[in-house]
Design a binder for these strands. Structure first.
Lengths: 353, 353
DNA sequence: TTGAAAGCGCTAACAT
DNA sequence: ATGTTAGCGCTTTCAA
């Protein structure tokens, strides 16, 4: 609880010298620096973060905006958080969790004008998002983890859903699959303009075309039950289907269970590839899921670094606004495990169903 | 970015009146209060959190200490975090994520003496934990999410592992199971003094005795593969086993898969109960797991409330230290799903294995 | 290379 | 019921 004044007195220098010794903002002779450092050690001095923030107008705290719905965070979202936290810490910043949903604009307005946070990371971004408009209006530095529909003038770091779908479809097509289903997020997500749902839908259609194969998209709930329902619907609509791409981990497990109970063997009769999946969950399934591994931690860390870069650059000319458009997309990596294999060439015996 | 001075001028009052109008720390006439409030609205005033914190010596920020290992957070840990965040927000506090492991004492020392945080929530507590000793020495308010071996003089909120094991064993015993296995965390966790592992081990033995039944404990890795290995070992050591209690969700799924592949039917031949499990994961399994549902969010929120209570009370007499011993244990609730049923009364046909 | 001093925006005595 | 004022502990001009 020693203050800078006490350190200064003990070191026999002025208080500003102590400050400069601490921040390195101006040159100090080696001798004085040593005396100051010694005094700090002697007194167990730690700078008061609040005082420092008030005087310097920088708190070194980042806000992470995430809606805290009842359902809790999935593995990928959690990885965003931990990745961001670690990256912030590494740069000498702190990260504050701010439970702020897309429509809590008042709450966000208060947060952003309180001067407690140097900038924001925005999670669970919708194709249009009130938080984005507000932060832009307030001229506060921020970076999206995700993307709005129009990213003009924004900084975003996101999973490369388009490329991930493309890679997954390529994997299946390469194995000889000619008809595949895409089990997407729920109809509500789609209608609500949830970015990943929309983007993968578009990308799936494009990928089918590119590979000259056919398929169906089935939206469903993010649960095992949803997966079961979806695979049934898909097989009904496309009896010749041999490959399934599934957006949601929970649904993926439901699909495997349903196929097994229907007497179909994975990957012999049907191949299943899970999108944006954590290795832990992939290994839960049996056989373990072939999956596009979610780069959650990497995305969280990258977003943080982008934000920090902007904070650093910001000190330049004023009126520059948020800086230029920036988009960084990280694809999921294909990890082949036990649920994908060559397409069967003959129809399954009728009795197997 | 208006300041209090500007608000005061506009309202035609002194700056302290504005402050009191804001904090309600002393009575204000309705008339002036209205004028002040109006001025605030007109100017879009928001108090500067840093200045307020510096002057009042309270930041209204709580720190959540959690080791950020490479493996990421499980569902229960994530629920601790979200529960704590929500509870803090509700009380007008913020929550900062601090990646501080049990041995990062220097880091914690700096954090705690920086005066940025009003108090700490400590996660992933070991039976002995350097962070606890340090925080106690520093006389900083803190509450554990978890428990050390000796909780004397500490405030802890934890899952009631003892009771959870007891309830789970009672469930199985009530279904007629006479021989059950407990698949615990890994041998390393046990050796490392990981609280939940140790506590459940003890409780399991006690519960067996109380119900007059027999069983074995098998430690294993927190993975599906670990579960498979464990169930094999358990069945080898105890061929007559009909019930399994399993600590880890991942292992639980592995156990189910292995049993299925061994030709055993769940719950007809063997019942499986999963400890400290999230409903989402329970529903992933097929059949869905009978589980002791983790009260993660509730524990996180409760711990936060305890900490806030201590912060409020703390303003009383000085030198009181951390306050009295406090222990709040929240049991997991049994949710019977598809993996538990009456014990089979005849031996399984030899060929079925 | 160093020091003096003016704030940063607010809270909380101490007055009245 | 309201005003005056001395800090909170630091950063950062401005001088030397």
């Amino acid at each position: 609880m020693a203050t800078m004044t006490e350190v200064a007195r003990r070191a026999g220098v002025s208080i500003s010298t102590v400050s400069y010794a601490l921040t390195g903002t101006r040159p100090i002779s080696a001798a004085t620096r040593d005396r100051v450092l010694q005094a700090m050690t002697d007194l167990g001095y730690q700078p008061n973060a609040l005082a420092r923030g008030l005087a310097s107008r920088r708190s070194s705290i980042l806000g992470l905006l995430l809606p805290l719905t009842g359902r809790g965070l999935g593995a990928t979202e959690t990885a965003f958080v931990t990745g961001a936290t670690a990256a912030a810490r590494e740069a000498g910043y702190h990260l504050m969790l701010c439970p702020v949903g897309a429509d809590d604009t008042d709450e966000l307005h208060a947060l952003a004008t309180q001067r407690l946070l140097d900038g924001f990371l925005v999670m669970e971004v919708g194709l249009t998002d009130g938080r984005v408009d507000l932060l832009r209006k307030l001229d506060v530095p921020f970076v999206l983890i995700g993307r709005t529909a129009d990213t003009e003038g924004l900084a975003c770091v996101d999973i490369d859903f388009e490329r991930t779908v493309e890679d997954a479809v390529a994997h299946l097509a390469g194995l000889g699959h000619r008809t595949i289903a895409y089990v997407n997020h729920s109809r509500d997500s789609l209608a609500g303009g949830y970015g990943p749902a929309k983007r993968t839908e578009t990308a799936f259609t494009a990928a089918l075309e590119r590979h000259g194969i056919t398929g169906v998209m089935v939206p469903t709930e993010d649960t095992a039950g949803g997966g079961r329902a979806a695979i049934r619907e898909a097989r009904e609509r496309c009896p010749e289907l041999t490959g399934v791409l599934v957006m949601n981990e929970n649904a993926a497990l439901g699909i495997l269970a349903d196929l097994r109970e229907s007497g179909l063997e994975v990957p012999f009769d049907v191949s299943v590839v899970s999108m944006v999946t954590s290795p832990v969950v992939a290994d839960l399934a049996s056989p373990p899921l072939t999956a596009m591994t979610s780069p959650g931690t990497a995305v969280g860390a990258a977003a943080t670094r982008v934000l920090l870069r902007r904070l650093a650059g910001d000190s330049g000319e004023a009126g520059e606004g948020q800086g230029a458009t920036y988009e960084e997309l990280v694809p999921c990596e294909l990890e082949v495990r036990g649920t994908s294999g060559p397409a069967r060439t003959r129809k399954p015996a009728r009795g197997r169903r």
